[in-house]
Computed example of a mutant assay.
Amino acid sequence: MYKCIIIDDEQHAIDGLKKYIDSVPELTLIQSYTDPLKALKSITEGEAVDLILMDVDMPKITGIELSKAIRSKTDKLIFTTAHTKYAYDAFEADADAFLLKPYTLGKFVITINKLFPGEKQGDAVMEKEDFFFVKSKEESPKIIKIKYKDVIAVESKLNYVMIHTATKNILTYMSLTEMAKILNNNDDFIQLHRSFIVRKDHMESIDGNTIKMINGVQITVGDHYRKEFTDFINVRLIKAGKKN
């Protein structure tokens, strides 16, 4: 469990970020501050934490200035701001990530997964969570838990992606590129078209360059992805031995 702190002078921004944190099982919020000077005193006197999420444009002291004073008290630092002009300053302040407001739950989860991809404990590697959350555009409740093993395919839909599972399809506001970042570290998935990422063990049949998934979705392998697809098939295709 990763301990985190929020610093933002706007309470509604803190409330929204709390909901995002509650959606990530690995994160636990231990404190939030609307007054950056109170945050400075409390954090410098307290124990180190795993993550601080901090606004940049705040009264009394900016997030950039504050970060320099408390950077040693956190393993990871994320700046959250509505202003792109602070991106370079955030880099100079040794921030690990920069979230531009308003950002989606998907972008938040992607950032967290990149910063905490899986930690070692002794000689054993801790297993990653076998599920993730997305914010559904159409369903209620809005935040949906999806197990990686249930994902059949992820399909690009302009500014959204459709996540196909065995039981339902979930439309969420996220690009396929963003979704790929979540799945990149998972060997069970492969991108075979600019509009599709599929789970390998949910392929039902292959006819030339056309793949049929177990839910009936058919995908034609794009030229850019054909070599990776061919390599994948060659490794798993059982062939008869040559006759002498």
Score class of each variant (00 low, 15 high):
Asp94Glu: 13
Gly122Arg: 07
Thr81Arg: 05
Lys142Tyr: 10
Ile52Phe: 04
Leu66Ser: 04
Lys101Gln: 08
Pro141Asn: 02
Ile152Pro: 03
Glu119Ser: 13
Ile110Arg: 11
Tyr88Met: 12
Ile70His: 03
Tyr160Thr: 00
Thr104Asn: 08
Val154Glu: 01
Asp75Leu: 15
Asp123Ala: 15
Thr111His: 05
Ala90Ser: 07
Tyr88Gln: 10
Lys68Gln: 12
Arg71Gln: 10
Glu139Leu: 08
Asp123Glu: 14
Phe108Gln: 04
Thr104Glu: 02
Phe132Asp: 00
Lys107Glu: 11
Ala90Gly: 15
Lys149Val: 13
Glu127Gln: 13
Met58Ser: 12
Asn159Gly: 00
Asp123Pro: 15
Leu77Met: 13
Leu158Tyr: 01
Ala153Glu: 00
Phe116Leu: 08
Phe79His: 03
Leu158Gly: 01
Thr62Tyr: 09
Ile78Trp: 09
Lys128Asn: 14
Tyr103Cys: 07
Pro102Thr: 03
Thr34Tyr: 02
Ile52Thr: 08
Val161Thr: 00
Val49Glu: 01
Pro59Glu: 05
Thr34Trp: 05
Phe98Glu: 03
Ala90Asn: 02
Ile146Arg: 00
Leu66Pro: 02
Ser67Pro: 10
Leu51Pro: 12
Thr84Cys: 03
Glu92Phe: 11
Tyr148Gln: 10
Asp150Thr: 07
Thr62His: 03
Lys60Asp: 05
Asp150Tyr: 08
Asp50Arg: 04
Met126Glu: 10
Gly63Ile: 04
Leu66Arg: 03
Lys101Cys: 11
Lys128Ile: 10
Ile146Val: 12
Gly106Cys: 11
Arg71Ile: 11
Val154Asn: 01
Leu99Lys: 11
Lys128Trp: 08
Ala69Cys: 01
Asp96Phe: 12
Gly118Pro: 09
Leu115His: 03
Ala87Gln: 04
Met126Ser: 09
Gly46Phe: 06
Thr84Leu: 09
Ile43Trp: 02
Phe91Tyr: 15
Ile146Gly: 06
Ala97Gly: 06
Glu45His: 15
Asp130Lys: 13
Tyr148Ile: 13
Phe131Cys: 03
Leu51Asn: 14
Asp35Lys: 04
Ala82Cys: 12
Asp130Cys: 06
Asp123Thr: 15
Ile143Pro: 01
Asn113Gln: 10
Leu77Tyr: 03
Val109Met: 10
Lys147Ile: 14
Ala82Phe: 07
Lys114Leu: 06
Gly46Ala: 09
Lys137Leu: 08
Lys147Met: 15
Gly118Ala: 14
Arg71Pro: 09
Val134Leu: 00
Leu77Asn: 09
Tyr88Leu: 15
Ser67Gln: 08
Ser140His: 14
Lys107Cys: 12
Leu66Phe: 05
Thr81Ser: 07
Ala97Val: 10
Thr111Tyr: 13
Gln121Thr: 14
Leu51Asp: 05
Glu139Pro: 04
Leu40Pro: 06
Lys147Trp: 11
Thr80Met: 08
Ala90His: 00
Ile78Pro: 01
